[in-house]
Amino acid sequence: MASYSTNEFKRGLKVMLDGDPAAIIENEFVKPGKGQAFNRVKLRNLKTGRVIERTFKSGESIEAADVIETDMQYLYSDGDNWHFMDPETFEQISADEKAVTEAKQWLKEQDICTVTLWNGVPLSVTPPNHVILKVTETEPGIRGDTATGGNKPATLETGAVVQVPLFVNEGDLIKVDTRTGSYVSRAKE
């Protein structure tokens, strides 16, 4: 199994920590005037999302995690699993609910997502930064009112609820920023 020495530590490196895959967020080298050097590291557990601090003796090695990020097309959900396809090999994989907790409200069939795989199994799914989704339910729009402020909730075809301007109607397509969950603009197909 591949491993990394502390002097290879850098942001983004994927390693095994306490049996879980983790990504290095921050790595600080500290050393007293005379004596042992340490690497003071912040990591994100890729299964739970929790941030952990851990100090290593400099020169120590740590097992690498077989974690890759790959672009895959979202196909459909059967309620228990979410199915994705590699657009080049047409190979299909399925992700369980844990992997899509954050992403599922933005997943639209055929959109290209980033799937993080650990030993070939989806760990998490990141939707595109921007998605275009249909409004399925909202209070009727106020025609012509494109200038004054004010928002209202709108339910989208994926079940997500976002705040939209008053002029948005049911059946409209809107562009949403999935990183913040906020409305960007109206959109055409």
């Binding site: 050393k31 004596g35 042992q36 100090t55 003796k57």
Partner: peptide
């Protein structure tokens, strides 16, 4: 022991 002292010192 020295390792723990270094750790406490730096951290």
């Amino acid at each position: 022991r020295e390792g723990w002292l270094d750790l406490l010192m730096t951290h």
